[in-house]
């Protein structure tokens, strides 16, 4: 089993992941191999099984609705590739 290069390109787009032609080629085989490995799951009888999303079957913990975070904007923006006036800079999105 292997994926077509078209399928690989589509998934890469969904993941916003830039790939070159060589990577696309090798991924179409490798993804096929990995999907071949996980295909064993389809034979398991899970008709009456509840999916397990959390290893301890815990619910979400609540907390009091109070502010616990301090303002650390400057420290966080100091490591940004490009920030200005407290904002993150990206290429223009509105023409």
């Amino acid at each position: 089993m292997s994926l077509t290069t078209e399928q690989v390109r589509h998934v890469a787009h969904l993941a916003r992941l830039g790939l070159d032609e060589v990577q696309i080629d090798s991924l179409s085989t490798q993804l096929g191999d990995i999907l071949g490995l996980v295909d064993a799951l389809s034979k398991a009888d899970t008709a009456s099984v509840t999916p397990m999303a959390h290893p301890l079957d815990m619910g979400q913990r609540g907390r009091a609705d109070v502010v616990t975070e301090s303002d650390r904007r400057e420290a966080y923006q100091a490591i940004a590739p490009s920030a200005q006036d407290g904002l993150y800079r990206v290429p223009r999105v509105i023409e």
Binding site: V8, L14, A15, L17, L19, L31, L35
Partner: peptide, 22 residues
């Protein structure tokens, strides 16, 4: 997004992102 991620991640990480996305 695409080039930053394409350049920043190595091949095993890309493989797993691809499997996960699929």
């Amino acid at each position: 997004y695409k080039r930053s991620r394409g350049e920043g991640f190595g091949s095993e990480v890309k493989r797993r992102i691809m499997v996960g996305t699929y």
